[in-house]
Design a protein around this nucleic acid. Sequence first.
DNA 1: CTCTTGACCGACG
DNA 2: CCGTCGGCCAAGA
Length: 108
Amino acid sequence: MKKIGSFRKQVYKLCQKVPKGKVTTYGEIAAAMGVGPLGGRAVGNALNKNPYAPVVPCHRVVKSTGVIGGFAHGTSAKEELLKAEGLPIADHKIEDLKKYLICLKGCL
DNA sequence: CTCTTGACCGACG
DNA sequence: CCGTCGGCCAAGA
């Protein structure tokens, strides 16, 4: 018995759990919910429609490859935001992504 | 209920 | 290393 619809809510919640200076991947979020690491699409979809835009720091979420991926405001803006957080960005991707990745599992 | 879309992931060549 | 293909999941029309 699993109620869907709360899926998006979980994503927003997890995004807010991400501290400043750290990042997470769509796959991690999906896995943390138990959706599976391949369900990253649903996560991206949830953030894209992001009704909690200013409430949820979705800019701290990147692809598992370290690439920025996409952003409703523009990938460039996301880059700048992450840079401002103190993350090493290079050519639209994050360096040492693994180093800045946090464990969302257990936070939920 | 069925079809299409999307800020993804992993494997293969 | 880069390009392409298939697979997974949820939301909207």
